[in-house]
Structure formats: structure tokens, C-alpha cells
Design a protein around this nucleic acid. Structure first.
Lengths: 379, 379
DNA sequence: GCACTAAGTTCAAGCATTGAACGAATGAGG
DNA sequence: CCTCATTCGTTCAATGCTTGAACTTAGTGC
């Protein structure tokens, strides 16, 4: 600690508080002072450099009732933006996000990249980012991948073996000359439900399925990653210890009963939209496949709840699409198996974010860091 | 926030840092300054009121090498103490603990309290506390019970039905005229391995068995409790979804295969020490009962690890006694089922604390709070 | 025009830490 | 026995952030 570092920390903490209030909604200095508990004087002081650096703008005026009219502050429309990108088995996606939490542009390109060489994949991602990024300062890039991540490298990805061990963050950073942060898609999908808006409360689990099943656990308003990034592997929670052999070496993993591939196979379908149609038409084979998956998922989630004790489960990804036909079985298993179930019902909700949840979380990773470490905004 | 509250927060934070360093070991002002990163000037300033209030003492001097000899500071031998108490199915226990982390006195009284009325139980606990508490200021009481706790009340305790719904914290507080904090025994046993000394690193799970199985999960150096105190219910993690019916209404819970009662029954023994002797003598029935329990526990712990991703498992309580014969099966199941197992081995250790772990954690709850909220020390 | 109201700015005061200077207490060496 | 080197602990001016009160600004209502 140098001389007056403590004082600087206080200031940065207050700056963070103010920025958080502004992400929630714009407001005048007086309004922000009331909302943050700081004084008007401090607010004038704190916002001055933000205005000078083009992070915020002062709107003309608001012709409200009595008294001197307030001039609301909001994030500058030409201020810095964040980029989110997703590399997945069957698609690439990119999104740009403002500090105010508004999506600027987004694209999702269906592609099977399983056989593409890593450099080609990164080239295409970089190209997509170049296409949709506006002429504004860029804070950085969040990059989502389906697998376990460690220090910018994908260390485990059953469905993208070609990218394992590749320094993806560094590779994309070099191409774009921007900071790139790599993270797991399950964590980022969960983050998207937490930031920039709370869509499911402070604490919840977000569960989604593609080939595997991933859960993003949010504790105390933070995505919980575990000591080495393996936390939340709901797909490999055991529900039948002598059950079907899993690719992970274990037996009876949830994934073997509730994975999307299993559901589709049992339902005799090849794609999710085809399954959804069959369900809508009341196809018995589809209905029973989804019910069976729901039961297995419910058992796994009950176990998760008995360990984490959370109030809400968010069904995302494919599960959100199947939600209507899946929830009953999930809820029923949880009701009989979750201890807290007696007193407090666990809420089961479908994600409102659709197929852009992951990429939005990836972009959110960047805006969140910018707000929580405001010193970065002046760099 | 009032006028200069921010500055006061900085001071309290530094006070906490200094006290934490002192819990680690005594030291002179200069030594503490070096260890905390604060300046000698600040240390003189911060320790002055602690000395004036009898929290710390300055030792005569230390005749070290060159230079002016240092006068180490340590917690005052007549300074405040914390009390821990445990109400359990077959015993009551009490311990007194100094701020320096040293146990002053402790007693464990075997008693079957299942049929005793709550008032009688609290009377006996209060009496025991009165007997061993020294003539020093008392910071408060931590009270451990086997069950789920909510706001000072035991809300779920399958093995102590008579105490459910009784305001235990308030009842004991009234008897002793002290602050009483109620918590779950599993959480407190875990805390005892974290505070005042780290016995198993920063993050770990502590697992113990009596009638039920409880896990205390420590994340980022804090006991994780969940939103309503139900977290860590390892006993009700499902390992066979169509398995044995459990008292909780679910099926195939770990508890039905690895609970102490199950082990004893399968081994044909009535008490833990008898089982331990049989194991030492190589009794095949005992060995196979423990092995079966270890396998079930291993499956449950593998699930827990796939969700929490922690580096260490501490086997406590009865499991610590059985550790030698239990570990192999547990470890084997975990090795094949934990995803991170390939890269990083999960360490399995036996608790060194014996039967006093819970009550030590209960007392630790109080000293920890005192150190983390130093303003309480001056009240 | 004048009183009223609310927004935003200016400024002296308060306070915890800091670093440098200083005083205190001991060992080493002559 | 005296002096120097060394380390411990204290004193003190300086720093920089928030605060609350006073003040200025800019509208509304009558």
C-alpha cells in the first residue's frame, strides 16, 4: 500500500456504487445521491471525470415539476462497448453490449466447427466481431466455450476435442488487439441472468443442455466456479450408481438420462425444433422421452438443491424450449426429494433469454468488470 | 453513512487485519507492521486502545540480537473468552476458548437427552457452562445442535424432535445473560477446521456421521450455509434413485447406505468403539460393512465434488474413527467419478480434532466474530 | 415580478494512514 | 567506560476523500 491508497480505494468503491446505480437506470446527480446514500457534493465530484472522459453524458434537462430542473446522467451513446462471442459445436455467435445493458447488435451463425482447425475458427470469430462492432471504444471481449477453462485455455471439452489445449484467449486477443477473457458457457449463461439485470434473483442455478448438461451456480450474486473451474458439473451427478456407463468413466450420470442427445434419440427425432413440434402435436413417444429426462434431471437437481440450498432453478438453452413439457416431472421429483421443499418451494422458471443467453453473458463479463473496476474506464 | 464513516471503516478493517495476525501468533509492533503491510505508526495507533481495554498485553521484552529489544504483544491472559456448547443426541459438551485460539477447559458429558424436556436440557447446559467458565469477560456463546437452524430456532432435527421449534438461543441467552448464537453441528465442525487455525486449507468439505450424515462446506474461507441453512445435506444426496426409501421421503439417499446406524447394523455391532475393535481384529463382517458404506459415501462425495470442485475432503466424527478402513473405498469411487480427478487429485484426510470438533467450532464462531467485528471488543 | 422549490457547486472541516524525523534501548568494539 | 550501529516505537506535518452547510442556478406558481 502506498501513501494514500486507502483513500483511493474509498473513491473507487464509491465510483462503483454510482456506476451500478446508473446501470440500473439513468438519473440526475441528486437522484443518484439519494439512491447511493452519498451526498450531492460527492456525486458532482465523482461524475465529473466520467463526463470528461466520455463515459457519461448529461442530458439537456428534464422539465419536471417545481424547482430547478434536473439534468439526468446516462451512459454516453458513443461510449465504450463490450463484445461477447461464443464458439459452440454447431454455431458461432457474437454480440455487442453497451454499459447501459442494451444490446447493440448480435448475430448467430449456424456452423459445424467440430472439424475445423483452431486458427480457422478464431479467424471466423474475429471476422464476425469486426463486422458488428461499432466505431466506439471497445472494453474487451468475453469468449464462451462449451467446456472447462483454465487461464485462457480450454482444458476439457468432450465435444470440441480439436480446441482443447489451444490458447484461445491469447489467439483471439492477438487477432483483435483487445483483452479477451475465456469462460465456460454454463457460467456465462448464468451470468446473463444476473447482469446487467437480475432476471432470477440474487442466487439461483441455471441449467442448460446441449450435448452435455451444464449448470451455472450463482451464490451471493457471483458465479461460483470452484477451485479449478469444474464446479456445477450437474451432468455428472450420479443418480444410479450402477447405471449406464458414462463417457467420464462414472456410471449413472444425469447426462446419460437427461442429455439432449438422449432425449432426441428416445423421441426418435434429429433436431430440437422437430422435437418441439412433435410435443406440440402430442406425440406420445416425444412426450414420454421428455418426461423421462425430466425425472432424471429432477433427481439431479434435487441433489444439487440439497447441497446448495438455492431458491430458484432457471431452465435455459434447450431445456427452456422444452420447459412446458419438462417442468412437471422435474418439479415433482424435486418436491419429494428436496429437504427444504417442505417449508419453501423451489421456484422453477424458464429462461427468457433464448439462444443468445451465452453470448450475452460473455459480453456481460466485460461490462461487469468495467463497472466493478472503474479505473479501467479511464485507460 | 454519517460524516466520516468511511474512514472509520478503514480503521476497523485494519484493526481486523492486525487481530488476525495476532491470532496467527504474537508479535511486536514492528513485526506486526511487517506482517500486515501497515506502518509502525499505524500499528502503535491501532494497538493503543486494545492495550488500554485489556484485550492485549505488552510482554516485558525480548532479549534478541542487536538494536532496541521488541516488546511482543499478545492477547491478554485475563482477556475475554468465548464459550462453545453442543447439545447432541447422546451427549452434552462445553468448551471455553481464548482469543488466542487456546482451549481453556472442556467437558463432554454422555447423556441421552432425547426424552428430556427442552427446559431441562438448557438448564443442564447452562450449569455446565457455569462450571467451566473462568472469571474473565465472556464474549458470547456458540451453541451447536444436530439439525437445521433458522434465526436461533431448531427447525428440523429428526433425532431431537423435542427441541424442534424451541427458541434455544433465546432460552440459553436468558439463563446466562449472554449473547447466544445457534448453528448446525456440521457447519461448526467444519468451522473448527478453519478457525482459529487452518487445518485443511482454505476450501474443503467436512463430512461426519452420527445418525444422519452432515457435510459442512467451506468456500473461500467461509462456511457456506445456503439461503435457508439447508446447504450441505450430503446425507440426502441420491445415489440410487429407486433405492431404499428414506425418512425424508426420497429414495436412495446416501444416508441409507453410509449412515452410522446402517454401518453398525450391517456389522452386527451396537457401538462405535465395538466396531472399531472388530475392524482392528479383522472381523470380515465389520470390514465389509465399512467398505459398503465407504462406497456409498464415495459416490455421494463424488457428486458433491462435481458440483463444488473442492481440493480436500475432511472425514470427521465417526468417519474419522473409521477412516483407516473407510478411505480406500471412498477414494476409489471418487477417483473414477470425479471429473477433476484426472488432473488434480482430491485429498482425503481424517480430522485431527476428535470428539471436540463441534464444540470447538461453536466457540470459534464467537471468537471469529469478535475478531472480524473488532468494535464488539470495546463494548 | 416575486416567492418558492429543487438541482448543482463551492468550501472549510474532519480523519486515518503515511513517511520522515526523532527518541529509546540494547549489543559490539575499542 | 564510551561510542557507534542497529532496531523499536513515537511524534508530527502532509495527503486526499467525504461531508454538511452555505450559496448559486434555474425553473414553477401566482
Amino acid at each position: 500500500m502506498t501513501t494514500v491508497d486507502h483513500l483511493r480505494q474509498v473513491r473507487l468503491g464509491n465510483l462503483r456504487t454510482v456506476l451500478l446505480a446508473l446501470v440500473d437506470r439513468p438519473g440526475s446527480r441528486a437522484d443518484l445521491a439519494a439512491r447511493t446514500g452519498l451526498t450531492k457534493a460527492t456525486l458532482s465530484n465523482l461524475t465529473e471525470p466520467l463526463l470528461a472522459n466520455g463515459i457519461l453524458v448529461e442530458e439537456p434537462a428534464t422539465l419536471a415539476g417545481m424547482g430547478r430542473p434536473s439534468k439526468p446522467l446516462r451512459f454516453h451513446p458513443d461510449g465504450p462497448v463490450a463484445v461477447g462471442a461464443e464458439i459452440n459445436v454447431s454455431h458461432l455467435a457474437v454480440e455487442t453490449l453497451g454499459l447501459d445493458g442494451e444490446t447493440l447488435r448480435r448475430v448467430l451463425v449456424p456452423t459445424d466447427i467440430r472439424d475445423a482447425p483452431p486458427d480457422e475458427v478464431l479467424d471466423r470469430v474475429a471476422e464476425l466481431i469486426g463486422e458488428i462492432t461499432p466505431a466506439r471504444p471497445v472494453l474487451g471481449v468475453g469468449l464462451a466455450v462449451p467446456g472447462v477453462v483454465h487461464e485462457g485455455v480450454l482444458v476439457r471439452a468432450p465435444n470440441l476435442p480439436k480446441l482443447v489445449g489451444v490458447p484461445l484467449a491469447a489467439g483471439l486477443a492477438r487477432r483483435l488487439n483487445l483483452d479477451v477473457e475465456l469462460d465456460n458457457e454454463a457460467n456465462l449463461a448464468a451470468l446473463a441472468h444476473l447482469w446487467p439485470r437480475h432476471l432470477a434473483g440474487e442466487d439461483f442455478v441455471h441449467v442448460s443442455a446441449d450435448v452435455g448438461i451444464g449448470a451455472g451456480v450463482v451464490l451471493n450474486g457471483e458465479v461460483y466456479r470452484g477451485v479449478s473451474g469444474f464446479a456445477g458439473e450437474l451432468g455428472h451427478v450420479v443418480i444410479e450408481r450402477n447405471g449406464a456407463l458414462c463417457t467420464c468413466g462414472s456410471r449413472g450420470c444425469v447426462e446419460r438420462y437427461a442429455g439432449l442427445d438422449v432425449i432426441l434419440r428416445e423421441a426418435g427425432r434429429r433436431r430440437l425444433d422437430s422435437l418441439a413440434k412433435a410435443l406440440a402435436a402430442g406425440d406420445p413417444k416425444a412426450l414420454s422421452a421428455v418426461k423421462a429426462a425430466g425425472e432424471a434431471l429432477g433427481v439431479g437437481l434435487a441433489t444439487l438443491m440439497n447441497l446448495f440450498d438455492l431458491p430458484t432453478v432457471v431452465l435455459g438453452g434447450s431445456y427452456a424450449v422444452l420447459h412446458e413439457h419438462l417442468s412437471v416431472a422435474v418439479q415433482s421429483e424435486m418436491d419429494t426429494r428436496v429437504l427444504a421443499g417442505g417449508e419453501r418451494h423451489t421456484t422453477l422458471v424458464a429462461s427468457p433469454l433464448g439462444e443468445f443467453a451465452v453470448v450475452r453473458g460473455a459480453a456481460g463479463l466485460v461490462t461487469r468488470r468495467a463497472v466493478q473496476q472503474p479505473e479501467r474506464l479511464f485507460a
